[in-house]
């Protein structure tokens, strides 16, 4: 599917890990526009996280072209990451980690501030806004290591939002979250999409998706096997069917 005025444009992208004898992503072409909500599904090892890290410029392209937020990923990965919020999957912090929630969220601004400069009033305000968006401003002065897994997940999501991103990449954002937190996050994602932010999530939880048009991308063995729009209620069935078809092919 092609989007007009895309914020993410991948053309025939291949990505391989160092030392691997075959690419992890094969011939990926994907175009995502402003305010699109994309859910990436597929079995374990299909290349979903690799796709997010390729978009984010954290993994090098071996072939193809990738332009994100107007920056060529190949030459300006740091520039891309300053415009993209990325929530990594499966993080748990040691109870002795010497960082408060406020400090962790402010860190989300560090890339945009630039080398040798200190966070200013604007950065602190952005961090405060992100905490309020997630409803965790009361945790601001708590050490992150002393929070529950779900609370830590919210803090990292607030960190991704603190830099006012144009694109939000979320890897398993609903893991560790209870049903109330899921609902709150979905409500927030709907608002972000409505405000024009492109949201791409990798998830295995399809129950309470945001109430908006959803684009489903199914991956299998490093390739995109399905890319189409659907209603939130149909996502689970679509991904399951596409997964079965790929396995039978």
């Amino acid at each position: 599917m092609a989007s007009s005025d895309p914020v993410i444009l991948l053309e025939n992208v291949y990505t391989a890990y160092e030392g691997a004898d075959r690419p992890t992503l094969t011939d990926i072409s994907l175009s995502v526009g402003k305010g699109e909500f994309v859910i990436i599904g597929g079995p374990n090892g299909a290349g979903k996280t690799t796709l997010l890290e390729t978009i984010n410029g954290m993994l090098p392209l071996t072939h193809g072209k990738a332009v994100v937020c107007g920056h060529d990923v190949r030459g300006n990965g740091v520039g891309v990451r300053r415009r993209v919020g990325y929530l990594l999957q499966n993080f748990a912090f040691d109870p002795l980690t010497p960082f408060t929630v406020e400090e962790v969220v402010l860190m989300g601004r560090f890339g945009t501030i630039g080398l040798f400069r200190k966070p200013g009033k604007e950065d602190h305000e952005a961090a405060k806004r992100a905490l309020q968006l997630l409803g965790i401003e009361d945790l601001a002065s708590r050490p992150i290591g002393q929070l529950s897994g779900g609370q830590q997940q919210k803090v990292l999501l607030a960190q991704s939002l603190a830099r006012d991103p144009d694109v939000l990449l979320l890897d398993e954002p609903f893991s560790n979250l209870d049903m109330f937190a899921r609902e709150a996050i979905n409500c927030l994602l709907s608002r972000l999409v409505a405000s024009g932010i492109a949201v791409i999530i990798v998830s295995h939880a399809f129950d309470d998706l945001p109430d908006c048009r959803v684009r489903v991308v199914v991956m299998h063995d490093g390739r995109i096997s399905l890319d189409r729009e659907c209603l939130p209620a149909d996502v689970g069935l679509l991904i399951r069917n596409a997964g079965s078809a790929s396995l039978n092919a």
Partner: peptide, 21 residues
């Protein structure tokens, strides 16, 4: 380099993902 150092101390992968060199 306090800002960059704190990012790296917190987590190198996360520091990279927020755009720290």
């Amino acid at each position: 380099l306090y800002k960059e150092i704190t990012g790296i101390i917190f987590n190198k992968r996360i520091a990279e993902s927020v755009g720290i060199q």
